[in-house]
């Protein structure tokens, strides 16, 4: 069975059509959740609106459990699903730079595109910034390459690193998510909520 296109159950020609359809769903849900508002997104870092945390972790858990169950029922071959390779140092430093960009700019790339689609001018400027940032990285690539490629650990899963089964890791991730949702609900009661 799945994934359908890598196994040629559906022709490769359909791949871009599926990408477009998936994107419509992605953009629609982001906007419905309120991810088109930078002040709503930034709320998670000040406790007044934890929508980012709730949507992000619910989505990650849904995707994770979906993949594990699909694999259990032989609906999908997990060996054909892309696993991001881990280059430890660049993942950490890249993430730190992105985190700074998040609190300064109020968006991440996906949410900025979604917000630009409904007319947020700050989001359009953010997208322009992404363009410049990627261009700067590309031009600096020769001097960054060594760091970029350092500490390669392979296409490794966290469950393998911890030496536990994928199901056990999923269980702990769900527990962590529930714990965070609980804290988020308390924080939202404590800090005055504003609607943007």
């Amino acid at each position: 069975m799945g994934p359908l296109i890598p196994q040629e159950i559906i022709g490769e020609g359909w791949n871009f059509f599926i990408a477009f359809a998936v994107g419509i769903g992605f953009g629609f849900v982001l906007e419905q959740a309120g991810f088109s508002s930078s002040r709503k997104l930034a709320g998670v870092f000040y406790g007044y609106d934890a929508v980012v945390l709730k949507v992000f972790f619910t989505a990650a858990v849904t995707g994770m459990l979906g993949l594990l169950y699909f694999s259990l029922f032989d609906w999908i071959d997990l060996n054909l699903v892309w696993v991001n390779p881990t280059f430890l140092w660049s993942a950490i430093v890249g993430g730190v730079i992105m985190g700074a960009g998040f609190i300064i700019g109020g968006f991440c790339p996906g949410t900025s595109v979604c917000a630009a689609a409904i007319g947020k001018i700050d989001a359009m400027v953010f997208v322009g910034g992404i363009f410049i940032g990627i261009f700067a990285f590309a031009e600096m690539f020769p001097i960054l390459k060594k760091f970029y490629m350092s500490n390669y650990l392979g296409q490794v899963k966290l469950s393998e690193v911890l030496g536990i089964s994928q199901g056990a890791l999923a269980f702990f991730v769900i527990l962590a998510a529930i714990g965070m949702f609980w804290v988020a609900e308390i924080a939202e009661k404590k800090f005055p909520k504003e609607e943007y």
């Binding site: 890249g94 700019g105 991440c108 953010f126 363009f131």
Partner: peptide, 19 residues
């Protein structure tokens, strides 16, 4: 917003992907 975008763009390339 522009500064945040520049940082996010740069970081996304170093980190091999964004949020």
């Amino acid at each position: 917003a522009g500064m945040g975008g520049i940082l996010f763009g740069f970081g996304s390339q170093l980190g091999r992907g964004c949020t």
